[in-house]
């Protein structure tokens, strides 16, 4: 039987990159996926519901969940994947770009987790998984705000884990290493290659590396696993 049959899964940033990968994985494993992105859908599937929304806007998140309360009614798994990266030395980083990263990389996961928890509370179960980055550990030059947001995401996740534990909602973080995505293409390839070469396991992440940990956190058997961060590739 498919691993996620009958489950409702929200994936933010679903139309591209890791979000698209996760969306297709959950669909392949029988879930209904509610994909959220600012742009159009990245896939078509009978169990895929696409919502165009800016999840950094509290009003849009509330509107989305008001709709979900009357349509799918329950949410089993949330993957906070949507993120934006502007890599730039701090002294020339535009304030607007920094603010946009804080809004989408930190505020948005909070807003989505908050609204999802209100639904999960009714069913007394749920899994919230936040996608972080090796940037937290590697602290690359140019990624000050991005890395800080992702570090904050772990703290956010750990506090939410405590607040949501009484209704069996777990909250965990997956720190991914470099994988071929649109976001990665924004960065100089030689620099990324050099970073990857210095990882304990010196290679790019594969789709299965990511899906393996996602499945672990999302598993019904992982109800006693919360407030944890797993980094890929030996990063810590």
């Amino acid at each position: 039987m498919a691993k996620y049959a009958g489950r409702n899964v929200i994936v933010t940033g679903s139309s591209r990159g890791v979000g698209d990968l996760l969306t297709r994985h959950f669909l392949d494993e029988g879930a209904t996926v509610i994909g959220v992105a600012r742009g159009p859908a990245g896939c078509e599937h009978e169990r895929y519901r696409h919502h165009q929304a800016d999840i950094a806007d509290p009003a849009e998140v509330q509107k989305l969940f008001a709709l979900l309360r009357t349509t799918v009614k329950t949410i089993d798994i949330v993957v906070n994947n949507a993120a934006v990266l502007t890599s730039q030395y701090a002294m020339i980083m535009p304030a607007g770009a920094a603010q946009a990263m804080v809004n989408l990389n930190l505020l948005a996961p909070f807003l989505v987790a908050r609204e999802a928890a209100k639904l999960m509370r009714k069913s007394k179960s749920g899994r919230i998984i936040n996608i972080s980055s090796m940037a937290v550990s590697l602290e690359p030059e140019g990624d000050s705000v991005y890395a800080a947001c992702k570090a904050g995401l772990t703290t956010l996740s750990n506090v939410l884990a405590k607040e949501f534990a009484s209704f069996n909602v777990t909250c965990n973080t997956l720190g991914i290493t470099a994988i071929e995505t649109d976001m990665l293409k924004q960065l100089p390839r030689d620099k990324i290659d050099a970073v990857v070469a210095r990882l304990p396991i010196p290679r790019y992440a594969t789709a299965d590396d990511i899906l393996n940990v996602i499945d672990f956190f999302a598993s019904e058997r992982s109800g006693y696993v919360t407030a944890q961060t797993i980094y890929l590739g030996g990063v810590h």
């Binding site: 509330q62 008001a66 309360r69 209100k118």
Partner: peptide, 17 residues
């Protein structure tokens, strides 16, 4: 305090819905 949070969430949601 946790019970009050629970009531606030339920009331806000019901008013909206």
């Amino acid at each position: 305090s946790l019970s009050l949070v629970s009531v606030i969430v339920d009331v806000e949601t019901a008013v909206a819905d």
